[in-house]
Amino acid sequence: MCYPFRHRIYTAATAGLSPVPAPSAQGPEAVRFVYRPALNPFATPTAGLTGPGATSTARVLALTALDVHGDDSLVVVPRPDAITLFGLAEDELLDDNTAGLFIPGNLDAALAYLETELAIREKGGVTEGRRLLLVADCTQEAERIAALLTHHPDAVFAVLLGHWTGDQATIDDEGLVEAPPAVASNFPSRLPAMSRMEARDRLLRFLAQQKDTQKPSTRRRSTSRRG
């Protein structure tokens, strides 16, 4: 079930562009500019985000998980959050069976899936499997999410918008981060920005590229392995 993505999202924003030295006159390649955000959606169990730059940061973290960590992770984004983050329509990607992405109808369905999957792993003695990343507005289910994270460390992670009761990083409209030290250490000093239009375009291209390379397969649970 593990199908690597071949394209990176390192051109997600203009901040932090670093020029690659120009090749010699005989060199066939042109000068390229590459942006490499020091972001890892799995650096901490929970990334609570608030402030005017929070939604943009959530987009970048979700796409980083899909692209950079797509071999061994599953990103779960409830439909309302997929609409907010990526501009997807209500009926878009309903039949999508991409290995690294799951879009359930709402947050309750997303949590029910995660709870069921983790319970099956626990009952079956599964010690290795896809890392699960929830990207959602947690306002209605903060306590339920907290319980899930507590009971399944290193198996489920979360990027949370809305009213999170734990530590949060406040992202301003320039991408600057204000957060407690333990949280701030997981972020660069300035976070890249990404609009909903750009995020939608990149998401759809990633999914199309993966479908071009993946073999017919069943859903995600078969990726787990017994310890």
Rank of each mutant, 00 (worst) to 15 (best):
M1R: 13
M1K: 15
Y3N: 03
F5V: 10
R6Q: 12
H7L: 11
R8Y: 04
I9W: 10
I9C: 13
Y10R: 13
Y10C: 11
A12G: 15
A13K: 10
A13G: 15
T14H: 12
T14Y: 10
A15T: 14
A15L: 12
G16S: 08
G16K: 14
L17V: 14
L17G: 11
L17R: 13
V20D: 08
V20C: 08
P21Y: 07
A22G: 09
P23V: 12
P23K: 11
Q26D: 14
E29I: 12
V31S: 13
R32H: 11
V34N: 10
P37M: 08
A38I: 07
P41H: 08
T44V: 11
T50G: 09
G51T: 00
G51R: 01
P52S: 03
G53Y: 06
A54F: 09
T55N: 06
S56G: 15
L63F: 11
A65P: 04
D67F: 00
G70D: 07
G70M: 05
G70I: 07
D71G: 08
D71Y: 02
D72S: 14
L74Y: 02
V75M: 01
V75Y: 00
V76R: 06
V76T: 01
V77F: 09
P80L: 05
P80H: 06
D81R: 03
I83Y: 06
L85Y: 00
F86S: 07
L88S: 07
L88K: 10
E90T: 10
E90V: 09
E92D: 04
L94A: 11
L94C: 05
D95I: 04
N97V: 10
G100R: 03
L101Q: 01
F102H: 12
F102P: 07
P104A: 11
G105K: 13
G105H: 05
L107H: 05
D108K: 12
D108H: 02
A112E: 13
E117D: 13
L118V: 04
A119G: 08
I120P: 00
I120V: 06
E122Q: 13
K123S: 13
G124C: 07
V126F: 10
R130P: 02
R131G: 03
L132K: 07
L132H: 08
L134R: 03
D137S: 12
Q140W: 03
Q140L: 13
A142Q: 14
A142F: 06
E143Q: 07
R144I: 08
R144E: 02
I145H: 13
L149S: 12
H151R: 09
H151Y: 10
H152E: 03
P153L: 08
P153I: 10
A158R: 09
A158H: 09
G162N: 10
H163A: 11
H163N: 12
W164E: 01
W164V: 06
Q168I: 05
T170M: 08
T170Y: 06
G175D: 02
L176W: 12
E178T: 15
P181Q: 12
P181M: 11
A184K: 04
A184V: 08
A184N: 05
S185N: 10
S189P: 04
L191S: 12
M194R: 15
E198W: 10
E198R: 15
A199H: 00
A199V: 03
R200M: 04
D201S: 15
R205L: 08
A208Y: 01
Q210S: 01
Q210V: 01
Q210A: 01
K215M: 01
K215R: 09
S217W: 03
S217F: 01
R219H: 06
R219C: 04
S222Q: 06
